[in-house]
Write a protein that binds this DNA or RNA. Structure first.
Length: 477
DNA sequence: TGAAATGTTGGGGCG
DNA sequence: ACGCCCCAACATTTC
């Protein structure tokens, strides 16, 4: 009798610590399968940068699988059904997703496969603590991060220790109908990704390299360096994590094991970093328990918030042409590299939602389009956090002053000068507020405001007042 | 994982 | 020497 299993790769593009893959590999033969899902809702369609990453990551995975990766495009339900039938597979394995449409899709597929006598088995390959297992004493979900993390997660059972890659994978010959990675048409025609190629190495090996570099070079100084965008003070693992090129478990234990015997001073940095993984978990948790997170304000009083709809200022923000250096540097970093430093993400988010009174949906959509690490759960939860409409969100009146943020975290203007080179000759005193520079200094620096670099599109003080006034309108209930 | 406005304190200049 | 004022530095409150 046949003993064939399918492993359905999704956001778990790795061989190591992949529970579903391990389970599939135990069968005498297996089919490693990737499906380019055309049934996804629009809001989830990948932006260009993410597509480029996916292309690279699939290349890497396929190479690790000795060119055995089977690829199709279409509706996963149909494709899985067809392949199971043609191959005679008795089992299908995958790692669970937590996005509402994926939960739904998985449920439907499970039922249909079972109707055909095929076992469908899902594993946890994505989270340290799965959302359905973490509840308050009264069986309702947490709404505040700290108790969620401390009581709900850290005091619960320890996360799974990472597993090795399967020892053997006996892959069924690849069917002739399998597409090639190029057939998926993920790589853009215009090679705008050349900058990204310099900065990133998608795939399981790239993820492992990035993790060990972080552990060896930055982890001990995380609390000191993490807010300084001109310094490599963060791990930059987010795109790798999104595509599942490594699991949070691998990060968690690589760090815990490596710094096991370290002194109390260093533990601060370690715990702070691990808590950031906790925020990622919290985002997935919120999305699971509040499936409308991507579109609906968690705090419903924001439904009445008087957002402005001004395409001109939105576009200035998107293109990094607001006239406020730290904002423009961040938005240009995003556009050029597919990434933005976390501190700057908060500052540009606050600016869009508060100083420009733009709905957080617009910010989330642009980030989703441009980020290599675009992730529905994290992106939605983070924008609601910035906007003040989320669970355990930043209070609305916490409005960042981009000048002060710049002066505090980019003191010498290194970050601004890198992404706004037209400002590079301004002295530090004015690098975060060129409009306050005396004429002669602007002239010496080769800048004509409104020509080489924009005048600020809003007055920071006035727009701050306007935001506070707008917030007053929705304050009751 | 703020910022600005307002309040308080204490050292030093000065009549 | 003393009290008064100024104001920087820090603390608290408010948004």
């Amino acid at each position: 009798m046949t003993d064939i299993a399918i492993h359905w790769f999704r956001l778990d593009l790795r061989l190591r610590d992949n529970p579903a893959l391990r389970a599939a590999a135990k069968h005498s033969q297996m089919i490693p399968l990737y499906i380019c899902d055309t049934s996804e809702p629009d809001a989830l369609k990948m932006g260009g940068a993410s597509q480029w990453w996916l292309h690279q990551s699939l290349m890497s995975l396929n190479s690790d699988l000795d060119d055995q990766l089977v690829i199709y495009r279409g509706d996963p339900e149909q494709i899985l059904m067809d392949i199971a039938k043609q191959s005679g597979a008795s089992h299908v394995y995958w790692n669970r997703g937590y996005e509402p449409h994926r939960i739904n899709q998985d449920m439907v597929i499970k039922v249909k496969l079972k109707q055909r006598g095929v076992n469908a088995i899902s594993h946890n390959g994505r989270l340290l603590w799965e959302p359905m297992t973490v509840l308050k004493a009264d069986q309702t979900p947490y709404k505040v991060f700290t108790p969620y993390y401390r009581k709900g997660c850290l005091s619960a059972a320890e996360p799974r220790y990472p597993e090795n890659a399967p020892e053997h994978m006996n892959c069924l010959p690849k069917p002739a109908t399998s597409l090639s990675i190029d057939d998926l048409d993920l790589s853009p025609d215009i090679p705008w990704y050349e900058t990204m190629e310099q900065l990133w190495q998608p795939g399981e090996q790239g993820a492992a390299d990035r993790l060990s570099r972080y552990i060896n070079e930055a982890a001990l100084h995380y609390t000191r360096d993490r807010d300084i965008p001109s310094v490599e003070g963060t791990s930059k693992l987010s795109p790798h994590l999104h595509f599942g090129e490594l699991s949070p478990n691998q990060i968690w234990y690589a760090i815990k094991d490596h710094f096991r015997d370290d002194s109390i001073d260093n533990i601060k940095s370690i715990d702070k970093y691990l808590a950031e993984l906790g925020w990622r978990e919290f985002s997935y948790y919120l999305l699971y328990h509040f499936p409308e997170l991507p579109t609906k304000n968690v705090s419903s009083r924001f439904d009445r918030f008087p957002w402005l709809d001004d395409p001109t200022s939105l576009r200035a923000w998107q293109r990094g042409m607001t006239g406020i250096p730290i904002i423009d540097a961040g938005m240009r970093e995003l556009w050029q590299t597919g990434y933005m430093h976390n501190r700057v993400r908060m500052v540009v988010g606050s600016f869009l939602v508060k100083n420009l009174l733009t709905h957080w949906h617009d910010g989330a959509a642009w980030f989703h389009d441009c980020l290599l690490d675009a992730d529905l759960a994290v992106n939605s939860a983070s924008w609601q956090w910035v906007a003040g409409s989320g669970a355990d969100a930043a209070p609305y009146f916490r409005i960042f002053n981009p000048i002060l943020q710049g002066e505090k975290f980019d003191k010498d203007g290194l970050y601004v000068r890198k992404y706004c080179p037209e400002l590079k000759d301004l002295p530090n005193k004015y690098i975060h507020k060129p409009w306050e520079a005396p004429q002669e200094i602007l002239k010496l620096s080769g800048i004509t405001l409104g020509d080489d670099y924009p005048q600020p599109i809003v007055d920071l003080k006035q727009s701050r007042q306007r935001a506070l006034a707008a917030f007053q309108e929705i304050k009751t209930a």
